[in-house]
Design a protein around this nucleic acid. Structure first.
Length: 656
RNA sequence: GCCGAGUUAGCUCAGUGGUAGAGCAACCGCCUUGUAAGCGGUAGGUCGUGGGUUCAAUCCCCACACUCGGCUCCA
């Protein structure tokens, strides 16, 4: 038998008999790898371990503890889920089941419109474990469209996917199922279960097992809300029991940070039913944090040469006709209010009003860039099922600015805005930023191609000049222009979209905005929409989760709590409180009605940055015992020293 | 808006076709406390709202509101 040679990732080559499989390559490297490998790549293309390699191929093996490996595990586990469901629910239809971040899902339609219950999930999971224990191989084969249609007769969703392959329209989720090309690949696990799939898959179900079914939810077939609603089962799968456990622990930790839970526990705000969905009331402790955030924002805008404006919450429908909002987004606006002199709407955005301010008198090029800033409260009629705590809300306040500038100023303005955004967000403890450029969706946009191109180029140029890397989201722009969205990573690595910088050639045209140039001629300004927090409410929610409720000292609702050890120390405690309050700090006292340990615990649960304990020693020496959040207790600190420490703590986090 | 699950004391949650319970919190006592829950007592609920079934509904049915998990949407 002739020998072939394959190239390994480390640059070495290995000689094997012709017709060897990827698994044989793994085995030739070592028995441990042969056991750990679940798939591989041949010349960069993903492949099953059973694939044969050819002379000169570059090959690599994929183990379960890599991102690619986990992806395969999850996809294979999704197949096991489908098999279990088809066995337990005769007549069930299955549609698609991809791997997703941390897990997988599979969509089904049950006979008679039945839905899955929690108990069903346990039964399905048990059946899945049987399938894993049965050590079923994943056997790949390729068929043509007609063979595929007969193989999946009685499975309308599968047949629809296959038909789309015939029509050459397979893409996205379909491609995951069938791959590209004329032939269709299928994977068979047993006599009664075969699924469309591009693969690759683990060689056998015994490579799986560290999974859990998480929840069941409705999902539209092909994501089309006019199409049928399927039943989606979500699961998670990992390479080891430990990795699975760690994932579940991470979920628990994230749940503890849930801003809705923290908002209630820390008495920050609430969503009274009487108020209506998606509307919040801010309690004193939430309101002070919000005020500090807003104060900081105002300070930075003032320093950044922005001009403050105020505009009303209501406007005549004519305004939103002019702006185009009624044309494009009437569905997202609160319904009209009929009044004797016309129809009024709650404002969904501040920009039309800022345009009116620009237009209120003649403008000179010497005034540009003109930066109008407002903490402007807007109302959007978000659909009932989309509301989500502070993150998706119907009444909210934008730290909104509209910048009017000349075409020549555009690039500089955007470049400096990028600095401004990053600088402000850093003050709130964010360090990781990701930039996205959203481009035009021809179906949902106003304005000419030329204008859009110009705006898109300006945004690209600015990011290139600034040296930030960015991703492009095709067709994700607002109707009036392309935008840069800025995502941040929070303390536990979750991604949040916060800031936005949007280029708009459209509104200046609609409002016929003009300035007088140095040539004495009238010109049309360009407009930038931008928000840093986005929505103050949403940003507050993100901050709550980011800090897990433990606001840094400069933002904490209560910065210091003074605890007299016993009633005899109350007077001294009051003196300490008075001194701190006089210094401008937010301080309170917990009287000696309860035992000290109890009061310390309460303060810790409230996540107060500093707990000061004062007793006999302190009264005698003019000191305090300092118990900082997350730090070591220190006795006998002079009040002056503590104030100094507090001042530097507050300053460190808030100064630029 | 769609699919599913929920809504019981301020909070977290038990519970039953015969008008309700715990822990924490609150309040009142006792304790006089040195770094994460001292002890005892009291009060607190039209069981989300409105209809219906029933001798009887917090429980079963319907509608609505709100919440949660997704889907869709997000200027």
């Amino acid at each position: 038998m002739s020998q072939i040679s394959v190239l390994l990732p480390d640059g070495s080559s290995r000689s094997l008999p012709a017709g060897s499989t990827l698994l044989a390559v793994a085995a030739s490297i070592g028995p441990r790898l042969a056991k750990a490998a679940i798939t591989g790549t041949i010349n960069g293309a993903e492949a099953d371990l059973s694939s044969t390699v050819s002379d000169g191929d570059s090959v690599a093996l994929v183990t379960a503890d890599s991102e690619a490996g986990r992806h395969v595990l999850r996809h294979s586990t999704a197949h096991v889920l489908a098999q279990a469901v088809l066995q337990l629910f005769p007549g069930a239809h299955f549609s698609i089941g991809p791997a997703i971040e941390d897990g997988f899902y599979y969509d089904f339609a049950l006979p008679g419109g039945r839905t899955f219950s929690e108990e069903d999930l346990s039964a399905i999971e048990a059946r899945m474990r049987d399938i894993v224990a049965a050590d079923q191989p994943f056997i790949r084969s390729e068929v043509d469209v007609d063979q595929a249609l007969s193989l999946f007769a009685g499975q309308p969703y599968k047949c629809e996917i296959i038909e789309r392959v015939r029509g050459g329209a397979a893409d996205g989720a379909d491609a995951v199922e069938v791959g590209g090309g004329d032939t269709i690949s299928v994977y068979r696990n047993s006599d009664d279960f075969v699924d469309l799939c591009r693969g690759p898959h683990v060689p056998s179900t015994n490579k799986l097992g560290h999974f859990a079914l998480m929840k069941v939810a409705g999902a539209y077939w092909r994501g089309n809300e006019k199409g049928p609603m399927l039943q989606r089962i979500y699961g998670t799968a990992w390479e080891s029991a430990l990795a699975l456990k760690e994932h579940l622990t991470r979920l628990e930790e994230a749940a503890k940070r849930d801003h809705r839970r923290l908002a209630t526990e820390l008495d920050l705000l609430s969503f009274p039913t009487e108020l209506g969905g998606g509307l919040a009331v801010w309690h004193p402790k939430g309101a002070i944090v919000r005020k500090l955030m807003e104060d900081y924002s105002r300070l930075r805008h003032q320093q950044g040469d922005y001009q403050f404006v105020y505009t009303p919450h209501l406007a005549n429908a004519n305004l939103f006709d002019t702006s185009g909002h009624l044309g494009w987004y009437a569905d997202g606006m609160y319904p009209p209010m009929e009044m004797d002199n016309g129809v009024y709407y709650m404002k969904p955005m501040n920009c039309p009003m800022h345009c009116l301010i620009f237009r209120s008198r003649q403008r000179s090029y010497r005034e540009l860039p003109l930066r109008l800033f407002e903490l402007g409260t807007v109302y959007r009629y978000e659909r009932a099922g989309t509301l989500h705590g502070l993150l998706r809300i119907r009444g909210f306040t934008q730290d909104d600015s509209h910048i009017y500038c000349t075409e020549e100023q555009l690039s500089d303005e955007i470049t400096s805005l990028l600095d401004f955004v990053i600088s402000v967000l850093r003050r709130f403890g964010f360090e990781d930023f990701e930039f996205n450029l959203s481009t035009r969706d021809p179906q949902k946009s106003a304005g000419s191609d030329e204008i859009w191109d110009k705006a898109t180029v300006a945004l690209r140029e600015a990011m290139n000049r600034h040296g930030v890397e960015y991703k492009v989201k095709e067709g994700d722009a607002a109707f009036y222009g392309p935008k840069i969205d800025i995502d941040v990573r929070d303390a536990i690595g979750r991604k949040w979209q916060l800031s936005t910088i949007q280029c708009d050639f459209n509104l200046p045209e609609r409002f016929e905005l003009e300035y007088v140039g140095s040539d004495s001629q009238r010109h049309r300004p360009i407009m930038l929409h931008r928000a840093l927090f986005g929505s103050v409410e949403r940003f507050f929610g993100v901050l709550l989760e980011h800090y897990a409720g433990a606001f840094p000292t400069w933002l904490a609702p209560v910065q210091v709590r003074v605890l007299p050890v016993a009633a005899s120390h109350e007077q001294y405690a009051d003196e300490v409180v008075e001194r701190l309050v006089a210094g401008g700090y937010r301080v309170d006292k917990s009287a000696a009605d309860d035992q000290l340990g109890k009061r310390i615990r309460t303060a810790k649960v409230e996540k107060i940055p500093y707990v000061l304990v004062v007793g006999d020693d302190d009264v005698a020496a003019g000191t305090v015992g300092v118990n900082p959040r997350g730090g070591e207790v220190e006795r006998g600190v002079s009040v002056d020293d503590f104030i100094q420490r507090l001042a530097s703590d507050v300053a460190a986090a808030s100064q630029d």
